[in-house]
């Protein structure tokens, strides 16, 4: 699971959708992998306004990335900022571990980079 994706993911349990504790999900035992990928500048620029910045800062910090500015960069982004965002959002992924809901404590497994958000029957 890419770091950008975690910014779009919350707990699949319907009752948690309205809880501020459910987002972002928190990583546990996360194993990180970084893969070099061609920069897609247009995508980074387009997607930036659709990122929940405080949640991204929180997720990044929990994985040891502490260089993000505390507020979302506005206006024209400099080249270095775009590259840094690309590295964090698109090149970095959690290959195995768990995502945990801060509201209901349900754990979602990540295996071979693919997270499983299917719920057991008692949570549907």
């Amino acid at each position: 699971m890419k770091i950008l994706t975690t910014n779009y993911i919350t707990c699949a349990v319907k009752a948690c959708k309205t809880s501020s504790n459910a987002f972002p999900l928190q990583f546990r035992d996360a194993e990180l992998v970084q893969e070099e990928l061609e920069l897609n500048e247009e995508f980074i620029k387009n997607i930036l306004p659709r990122i929940e910045w405080p949640a991204l800062v929180q997720t990044a910090a929990s994985l040891g990335f502490t260089t993000l500015p505390s507020t979302k960069p506005e206006g024209d982004l400099d080249e270095q900022m775009i590259k840094d965002l690309h590295t964090l959002l698109v090149e970095t992924q959690v290959i195995s571990g768990k995502l945990v809901c801060g509201n209901c404590q349900h754990e979602y497994n990540i295996h071979q980079g693919i997270a499983n958000f299917l719920l057991p029957n008692h949570l549907v």
């Binding site: 950008l4 993911i9 499983n116 299917l118 719920l119």
Partner: peptide, 23 residues
């Protein structure tokens, strides 16, 4: 085109984990 594949995950649309917002 590896740089254009963001992610794949296991999920059910009727219980989606996607944060509800228009992105």
């Amino acid at each position: 085109m590896s740089n254009r594949y963001l992610d794949g995950f296991t999920a059910d649309l009727t219980n989606t984990p996607l944060r509800k917002a228009r992105y």
